[in-house]
Design a protein around this nucleic acid. Structure first.
Length: 424
RNA sequence: GGAGAAAUGGCAGAGUGGUCGAAUGCACUAGUCUUGAAAACUAGCGAGGGUCACACCUCCGGGGGUUCGAAUCCCUCUUUCUCCGCCA
């Protein structure tokens, strides 16, 4: 959520940048926000004046009672009745205006960074980096869902029986390989200073609001209605909300966390040809990295996160590329996002395995995540996060790219975690 | 799940209807003293709105109510603690 003060000061710039997202209503909404905020201020001032007078009279009544002048007090009491009625009305007005203002603010996405290219679909994303060799597979190479079946390491039908489509069961070396990946990712992250945390997989409404999933995207999350809780779609939600309503010191920066969690996504409406196997699931595992940064450092931090994910993919020897998301593909809350995609050789397509974003103050404003700056003033911090990494597609990439006629080889860096070097 | 107690500033902890955004202690910040530090002393020290700056307004777990006036009384929700029940 943008701050009204920011909107007021940088109105033209914001309208111009929002055009990159094809957010055509920008000008109208921004102008509405400013008008309504003026109304808010006026109403607030009017209410404050009435409350001030009412407070003054109440105090006087107190003194009069003490000195035994009951009659004078009674006269004053009558006067407060009117004021009370007025303040009640104004209060209602104020909360209406405030709701109106908030409803507008909720509709405005984050301002894209100047690096974000214009564009409408994923075709317009900008490839900024590419590395690794696409292996030449032997004749008869197969996609990962067939590999999974052939070696009996992932059972999709069994998951369907227990829950439904999109909830696979990992078995034997498949399960072990998954666990190896989780441990490997966590170790890589903690090695460079991310503190590991284990967090709840269910979150309340306030948390969903803080990171921007609510109120608009509740359809993407599983809702436990009995207790009004949501299953997390990503560790970003609980981990970032660790810092909801927090006032930091400048010396607290940077804050770095990593967390392994399962992720639950309804993926409503995204069925189709490209969702086979591990490509798109309702439940999957992910290791996330989250940073809370001083505004001056957040873009350097973003670059460091990108470098970190690069190193992991390099170590796994998977061919990958990095995309800078265009305005049309950029998430609602993000100012700049880099997607990492691994090449899935048997499917002949790129699979997204990580998404690294800077949200600047967009989430912090909702979270009330601030720090005391050098002038002693409260200022919003910047939040960032990235996958490091999402498991299923990395797994798919390994199974497909490492397949040989004799079985699936295990990437060298993982062998000390798996305890085996081939699935056969 | 049942019964009882509690929730106040970074922490501890006063405050049970009026001048209380709130005593006191610790922590913290600045100054005096000191070669420096400690100690001692002095001053400052919650957040949000509003203002050029003041004034002023709001906030004592959340929400609602009583009252001219609520941290204080009432209702409700949440959380914590104790006891009982259940249980990985």
């Amino acid at each position: 959520m943008l701050q009204v003060a920011t909107i007021r000061e940088h109105k033209d710039h914001i309208i111009e940048r929002l055009a990159v997202r094809n957010f055509s209503d920008a000008k109208t909404i921004i102008n509405q926000v400013l008008t309504i905020d003026e109304k808010r201020k006026a109403t607030q001032t009017e209410l404050d004046n009435i409350l001030a007078e009412s407070n003054k009279i109440s105090k006087e009544i107190g003194f009069l009672f003490k000195s035994g002048e009951q009659q004078k007090a009674t006269i004053l009491k009558e006067k407060t009745g009117q004021l009370k009625e007025q303040s009640k009305q104004l209060n209602e007005q104020l909360s209406n205006v405030q709701n109106e203002l908030n409803n507008l603010l909720y509709q405005i996405p984050n301002i894209p960074n100047k690096l974000v290219p214009a564009g409408t679909t994923e075709e317009d994303n900008e490839e900024v980096f590419k590395e690794g060799n696409i292996p030449k597979l032997h004749d008869g190479a197969i996609p990962h869902w067939e590999i999974a079946k052939k070696y009996d390491i992932i059972d999709f039908e069994l998951g369907t029986k227990i829950t439904g489509a999109g909830f696979p069961v990992y078995k034997g070396k498949g399960a072990k390989l998954q666990r190896a990946l989780i441990n490997y990712f966590l170790d890589k992250n903690t090695d460079v200073g991310y503190q590991e945390v284990q967090v709840p997989y269910l979150v309340n409404e306030a948390s969903g609001f803080g990171t921007g999933q609510l109120p608009d995207k509740e359809g993407q999350m599983y809702h436990v209605t009995g207790d009004n809780l949501y299953l997390i779609p990503t560790a970003e939600v609980p981990v970032t909300n660790l810092y909801r309503n927090v006032l930091l010191k400048e010396s607290d920066f940077p804050i770095l966390h990593t967390a392994y969690t399962p992720c639950f996504r309804r993926e409503a409406g995204s069925y189709g040809a490209h969702v086979r196997g591990l490509n798109r699931l309702h439940q999957f595992d992910k290791v996330e990295i989250v940073r809370i940064e001083h505004p001056n450092n957040s873009y350097e931090a973003l670059d460091r996160m990108v470098d970190h994910v690069k190193e992991i993919l390099r170590e796994l020897k998977l061919p990958y590329r990095i995309l800078r998301l265009c305005g049309g593909d950029l998430g609602f809350t993000s100012a700049l996002t880099y997607d990492f995609e691994v090449f899935s050789t048997a499917q002949d397509r790129w699979l997204e395995v990580s998404s690294v974003s800077n949200f600047e103050t967009f989430q912090a404003n909702r979270l009330k995540l601030r720090f005391k700056n050098a002038d002693g003033k409260s200022e919003l911090a910047h939040t960032l996060n990235g996958s490091s990494l999402a498991l299923p597609r990395v797994l798919a990439g390994i199974l497909e790219n490492y397949q040989t006629e004799n079985g699936i080889k295990i990437p060298e860096v993982l062998q000390k975690y798996t305890g085996f070097d081939i699935i056969d």
